[in-house]
Design a protein around this nucleic acid. Structure first.
Lengths: 330, 330
DNA sequence: AAATTCCAAGAAATCGATTTCATCGCGCAT
DNA sequence: ATGCGCGATGAAATCGATTTCTTGGAATTT
């Protein structure tokens, strides 16, 4: 564990000169060379902790997501990572497990480690960002908005709900249910609203067809089971995220029902789907791009961008890729 | 951003006393109280960077995995996280994307941030851990072993290969192919060896039935396509990880083949599988437990455990849960 | 009562980098 | 020849915590 002092001594210069050399400031070529030799010989790498303590800034940003086992979020994480890496930042990935307490712990770490910025896909609770923001560190909300004076990058949730529903209506279904996430999560509400609007626009009644579940497989499955038992049994369903869709489809299969008689429309993608999906429709959400946009926005802020707070709703990508009903080749 | 000096001044004591109070050393009760009040009023939280710079240790461990989008690794990550959180450590999750260069970058970060320890599921290359280990930080290999003087927690890969194959043999199949990962990855080799052993033990020829692919969906799919075209067309296949299985099954479905005529045995789990899986057999790998064991081992090392290097091969869990051939309810 | 412990608490050093400030030459203008 | 400016460099301060060293005074011992 060589330090900058060791390097300085070996190169016969002062630590300050080594530091300047490392940061490409005025240093005469011969010293640069002998410093470089000393660095190589000692296998010196600067200690980031000391560096960031002095600089009061860090090369690390945090990404807090509610479910690390959901491919939607890991895809997003990939997008974040790629952009961040490009900019020379490391990403610390934290899994809040949709638990406000765990989330708070990570927020505290972000504060205490004084990270350069935070990308937050919040849990259901209302996060307390006061401490983080007091430190002057930028925050960008991803996927879920929770406060209107914070930058955000979100999906076109209402539109997605409407598109998913319209696809089913056009396929001839009328009794179309919607299984969405907890009422406390805005994406869940928005997608349901999109569904409702499509139903209204088509002049189809929607009473008793909305189910608030959670955004997990079990939730989707239970909701589907209930739907199939209910007196107002639907003949199609809009699954408001990928995991709900998995659960719903599992339940259908478990009951020996195929999707040809029962319409299923999914908001999101099913990454590891196996069988034929001819009868499913998908509204693809550009998760990776969401991550990339959010990361880019955060990096701009870190670099001093001071334009007014904005909310970016992704669109282009959805517009063009939306609602392709894939063949078996998916 | 209050510092310990601010707290000290407000409480009318020295910074040293505040520090001692925070670390529960001898401080008179009345000072403890006034310090606490100052802390509350200023909303002070200690700066971890300064702390760890001085202490030369960190409350953060790193987990480097080769593919964040593979549920196997995220499940493992969950295990790690739970144990670490219990011990008051935060986990930094890094995705090497199976790229030795990215991996090296993260290793460098581990060194430079002087993290408390490292859990490494290495990429295909030979990682250079010299720098990290020179710093005295413990390292535990997970899932993949790469050096025999480093602690490791691994799956019973050979046994899993054998079990997966035996299931197919018992079901009456004879021409059983094996699609495994790159030859450079030991888990891939070991699982294939298990397959080979089962074949030999059953007196069944295995020539030309081994395919080295990669551990991804596309690789599995391509391998399956090739297998189905080959002159020595098999009637069953062992997929050596979950993603290969997904690819293989996709290819089968794309060709309109059901799994009832063609045997498929999977090492690992298919978390979001939809269709009927009646005809698949699974050898479940306890990914979560692997993460937990590895984390526990690392934490022991961090706390000064100096027993000889060991390699833990998970077994109990596999032994009991192995090879249940699930009904549609999976 | 004098001497010895003992302990709470402050002053100052420390961790390893960056950065300000001061200094020293050297070249150029007057 | 003297002075001014400027670029390269070193000494020392700094970031915010912990820890060693020291000290003053209370408690205990003889």
């Amino acid at each position: 564990m060589a330090t900058i002092y060791d390097v300085a001594k070996r190169a016969g210069v002062s630590p300050a000169t080594v530091s300047r050399s490392l940061n490409n400031l005025y240093v005469s070529p011969d010293k640069v060379e002998s410093i470089q030799r000393a660095i190589d010989e000692l296998e010196y790498t600067p200690n980031r902790r000391a560096r960031s303590l002095r600089m009061k800034s860090n090369q690390v940003i945090a990404l807090i997501i509610p479910d690390i086992e959901n491919p939607y979020f890991t895809e997003m994480a990939r997008g974040v990572e790629d952009v961040a890496q490009e900019a020379g930042l490391s990403v610390v990935l934290c899994n809040s497990d949709d638990d406000p307490a765990k989330e708070a712990t990570y927020l505290d770490i972000v504060r205490a480690e004084d990270m350069a910025g935070l990308l937050l896909a919040t849990s259901s609770g209302q996060p307390d960002l006061a401490a983080v923001r007091r430190g002057g560190r930028p925050v960008v909300a991803v996927d879920r908005v929770f406060h209107d004076d914070i930058d955000a990058v979100v999906m076109p949730n209402r539109a997605a709900g409407t598109l998913a529903t319209t696809a089913l209506i056009e396929a001839g279904f009328r009794r179309i249910a919607c299984i969405t996430g907890p009422e406390s999560i805005d994406t869940a509400r928005d997608r349901a609203e999109g569904w409702q609007r499509a139903m209204r626009d088509a002049g189809v009644p929607s009473d008793g067809l909305l189910y608030h579940s959670d955004f997990r497989v079990d939730g989707g499955r239970a909701a589907m089971a209930e739907l199939l038992e209910s007196p107002s049994r639907p003949d199609a369903v809009v699954a408001s995220n990928n995991l709900i869709a998995v659960g719903a489809l599992q339940e259908l299969h478990a009951r020996g029902l195929s999707t040809s008689g029962f319409g299923v429309s999914v908001i999101g993608s099913l990454p590891y789907v196996l069988g034929p999906t001819d009868d499913l429709s998908f509204v693809r959400l550009p998760a990776r791009q969401m991550g990339m946009s959010a990361a880019a926005m955060l990096i701009d802020r870190i670099n001093g961008d001071t334009q007014p707070v904005r909310t970016v709703e992704l669109r282009a990508d959805v517009g063009s890729r939306v609602l392709d009903i894939p063949g078996a080749a998916e």
